[in-house]
């Protein structure tokens, strides 16, 4: 499987990573190389093998429905831009996004 320049540009945009025009071609070739290498795994017949979700042989841990977190407004917005500059209390602020 190979990846072209347009695909790289699209993936970069979806991931919000800035990739310059001159970087597209080399990236396409590198990504294609990785995918081809991974594709070798398809040569192994895994039809009878259940997918492995983890290398640990354990089950998902469940928590009780108990409130034991939160109430740390100041911590949560401590690093937010304008965290303490608006009068409305502890909101995060971002440039206006309106639909």
């Amino acid at each position: 499987m190979s990846v072209d320049k347009a695909t790289v540009a699209r993936i970069a945009h979806l991931a919000r990573i800035g990739v310059g025009e001159d970087e597209l071609e080399p990236l396409a070739s590198e990504l294609s190389g990785i995918l081809n290498w991974i594709e070798q795994l398809n040569e192994v017949d895994t039809d009878a093998v259940p997918p492995m979700a983890s290398v640990h042989d354990e089950a998902l841990r469940w928590r009780a429905d108990v409130i034991n977190d939160g109430g740390k407004q100041a911590d949560v917005v401590a690093n937010a831009p304008d965290g303490d500059q608006n009068n409305d209390g502890a909101f995060f602020t971002v440039p206006k996004v309106i639909e």
Partner: peptide, 12 residues
């Protein structure tokens, strides 16, 4: 969207 002229506030 309606509490600041140029900013959107986020409540998580």
């Amino acid at each position: 969207h309606d509490r600041h002229p140029t900013k959107t506030y986020i409540d998580l």
